[in-house]
Amino acid sequence: MPLSAVKAVAKGQNGVGAFILQCKRLDFHYCDWAGSSRGMNAFIQKRLPQFARENPQIEITVSPRPHKHPVVKGHYINGREKAVCVRNMTTEMILEKASLLRDASGEKLKRVNKPVTSVNESVRGIWSPYHGAQYKI
């Protein structure tokens, strides 16, 4: 066999072609009694149906969490989850947090130093002394 092949798997590039929203599920936890859930309860009653209608890709779960602060929890395709405590927040602030969780990729936060990240190799070849400005003694 003069020529054989190396097995590989094609890598997905989310957003090139199809885009898959990385947030799978949002859990909204509230408490009926505690004052810190006042904004959350109003959010669930007034704003959540519209939020869910705008984001059909996300499974939304509402469940009580008695005697605890309200929490919004996002579950992501990479298996991680992010929880945000929304105690004493108003409806708008909770919507902001829910949107943040929706737009997150689920990855750990990391600093991005380079303006461009590419899967392609650099097109520059091997350095050669005969190219460019030559060193003069």
Binding site: A52, P56, T61
Partner: peptide, 8 residues
């Protein structure tokens, strides 16, 4: 149960 998906 507590599973809801309102919009779709």
């Amino acid at each position: 149960g507590d599973q809801t998906c309102f919009g779709y």
